[in-house]
Design a protein around this nucleic acid. Structure first.
Length: 234
DNA sequence: ACATTAATTATGT
DNA sequence: ACATAATTAATGT
């Protein structure tokens, strides 16, 4: 039913080295979907009736607190599996998935999960490693949140985005999806005002350059040093 | 050391 | 023109 290129899946980690008929098997059960900026792909606590593979674009995992405050848990970049509640023994999604920018996604009904795991060892090991690395990231962030100062936290938030979605330009490394100060604030656990103030300062110090919804890190090394020491190098 | 409030300006449809 | 984003200063905990 779909006109997706068969070579597309072949190059993705979970489906590496599969035979053509296996690729077809997987694609036949997949539903390709597009999402626009800000679209909710699935909602926190909703029944996990599908799991997903991000083909293009970026998605962020978001949770809402008691008093309606958003926090951004992590970003997912293309090639990654997400919405894999089954992998952590859940029947509902632990967070909401929001499209940041245009997204192209493959989704499969959850009932195929167990079979995929059995049939395709790469798919199984890939889910383990993505679950593992996300746990690791969240783990680090807990430590950061409780030990570091805001300035270091927003530095880390920016560095993480650079790491996951950095694109080299003439000026430096640019974050490949739209980010507002509010977004950064939600990642660093602070307010957009503090973020705005910090970004302005770092702009003057020629560490970053930023326009509306865009952040370019012009001196990545200095920002790394700052995130670790709380001081800019001479 | 940070958040909150509020007022002001810039930017994108 | 209108809504959304960003800056900036003042005040608060």
């Amino acid at each position: 039913m779909n006109k997706l290129d068969n070579t597309l899946l072949k190059s993705l980690p979970p489906f590496l080295n599969l035979a053509p008929d296996q690729i077809r098997d997987i694609l036949e059960r997949a539903q390709p979907r597009r999402f626009a900026t800000g679209d909710t792909i699935f909602a926190e606590d909703g029944t996990a009736d599908a799991f997903f593979l991000l083909l293009d674009g970026y998605v962020r995992a978001v949770r809402i607190t008691e008093d309606g405050e958003q926090i951004v848990l992590l970003h997912i970049s293309s090639g990654q599996l997400f919405g894999i509640a089954k992998a952590i023994g859940r029947t509902t999604y632990p967070a909401s998935a929001i499209a940041t920018g245009e997204c192209l996604v493959l989704s499969w009904p959850t009932r195929h999960w167990d079979e995929f795991i059995k049939k395709y060892p790469r798919f199984a090991s890939e889910t383990y490693s993505t679950v593992g690395s996300r746990m690791g990231e969240l783990n680090n962030r807990i430590v950061e949140m409780s030990t570091l100062h805001v300035e270091q936290r927003v530095a880390n938030a920016i560095l993480r985005m650079v790491q996951q979605a950095g694109r080299k330009t003439e000026q430096g490394i640019e974050i490949d999806f739209p980010v507002t100060r509010q977004d950064v604030a939600e990642m660093a656990g602070t307010t957009l005002h503090t973020v705005s103030r910090l970004l302005s300062a770092w702009q003057k110090a020629e560490i970053i350059a930023s326009r509306r919804k865009l952040i370019v890190v012009t001196a990545p090394h200095k920002l790394v040093v700052f995130s670790e020491t709380g001081q800019f190098p001479e």
